[in-house]
Design a protein around this nucleic acid. Structure first.
Lengths: 241, 241
DNA sequence: TGTATATAGTTGTATATACAAGTATTCTCG
DNA sequence: CGAGAATACTTGTATATACAACTATATACA
């Protein structure tokens, strides 16, 4: 393969610069980025070229622009409508219900094959392991079993997850850049059925979620929902109209 | 509410013109649209303004452009990564497996409450009703129960669905513009378990899919997959990088 | 015939310019 | 002090121009 010798267009240089400022945390959400004119001076390009960089970053959702005001770093939101990385506590409060949870387990364990694979770690590595049941108005709606990479989140076990969801805590200490979900249907184990207060046999939705931050795979969670108390939804429309 | 008095920018006029040509079927997929220069002449604007229209339609996925060649109408693809409207027959062939199916039922029935609601029809309306089991290498992987609006697809019952999947047939006669999915976990009924050749009890993924064409709600399908033979997957990444 | 070369047409990048329009601040005047 | 006007700065729209890069076709030549 030949090295691509293509020169990077000037507007791309500006785009890259802005992205870097944001990724390095120098410009956080709602920070005002330089104006078209000042970027033009800074990079010795015309206003229209600087404008193009800002414009494209806007359509890509990195910036928001307001006429008369300026350009600002956008709030970071996940793309993809169906399976966003949501915090179940927020979902429940948003419905106007009371959220609570119970921590069943917090431990250090040795990675089994599947968890090690999911976190890109060698089998037998030390992992943090937690099991939490989430309640919606005292009705259990999710069994969360989670494996977390101790190198990226060293103080995971010291957290009080009745106050702050693991999901929320993790997104704070290791802002996630990527996520992967799979959805399948399984029967609950007896232990899970007891914790979720469901009769056996019961079909459950099992969502496996892997999340990455810029430093690597952070966490691997298995989220089990009683089939009778949970569903996923998605709308989609075609490109046209 | 005051009527928006804002004048439509010139580039927006050109965008609208192009979208209309496509929506009316005058320009179909891969059709070459006028060049920047000729659009500029046609609408009495500069090339850069015509260019902007083409450019934006490209980022919106309506057109594709190739340097030196021209601009072309893009293939219509659904947006949203997870639950596209896929044809299970295509999925199976794509994996290199052999696809087959068995039609268990084809009838006219009176809409039950849920089906009527799903298709925006009054309860008791006449509906087409079909049940088909889809096989991957002779292993049943999907139980498809479908209700179809006879006013939009009058000759549904005359089709030979062993040759052409309902999904594929419907997208041909009534190109879909919108779709809605829900995903839940349920236990298979005895009838479904027999048809899918699964042991009881078995957890199954139930996907409910409603599809619309420009003329209204076309079809409501319940797609049941054995939990042990099916899963859904989705990747998503954040706005940045 | 086959292979370069020229050419015409397309999109891509970049600039300079002009004016419109929205926002916030400052200034002026009653 | 308050209200309106002037202002400075921002993004938005539109144009004219120049050249680069890519593609397909036509042409010239060996």
């Amino acid at each position: 393969m030949a090295v691509t010798n293509a020169v990077e267009p000037r507007y791309a240089v500006i785009k890259r610069y802005i992205r870097e400022q944001i990724e390095q945390g120098l410009w956080s959400e709602h920070h005002q980025v330089p104006s078209e004119n000042s970027l033009g001076e800074q990079f010795s390009v015309s206003r229209m070229t600087a404008r193009r960089a800002l414009q494209e970053l806007t359509t890509e959702g990195v910036l928001v622009r307001h006429q008369g005001l300026g350009s600002f770093v956008a709030e970071q939101k996940p793309v993809g409508s169906l399976l966003e990385v949501r915090n179940i506590a927020d979902d429940i409060s948003q419905r106007g219900h009371r959220y609570s949870n119970q921590v069943l387990l917090m431990e250090t364990c040795c990675a089994a094959a599947d968890a090690a694979l999911a976190l890109d770690l060698p089998p037998g590595s030390e992992l943090y392991h937690s099991i939490i049941v989430h309640y919606d108005n005292d009705l259990p709606v999710q069994w969360e079993e989670r494996f977390t990479n101790p190198r990226l989140v060293p103080d995971y076990l010291e957290q009080d997850f009745t106050a702050l969801t693991p999901n929320r805590y993790l997104t704070q200490v290791a802002p996630l850049t990527e996520a992967e979900h799979t959805v399948e249907a399984v029967l609950a184990t007896d232990e899970q059925a007891r914790a979720l207060q469901i009769a056996q046999p019961e079909a459950c939705l099992l969502i496996k979620r892997r999340t990455w931050s810029s430093r690597g795979a952070v966490s691997y969670a298995r989220l089990l929902h009683p089939g009778s108390r949970y569903r996923l939804g998605a709308q989609l429309s075609m490109n046209r109209n």
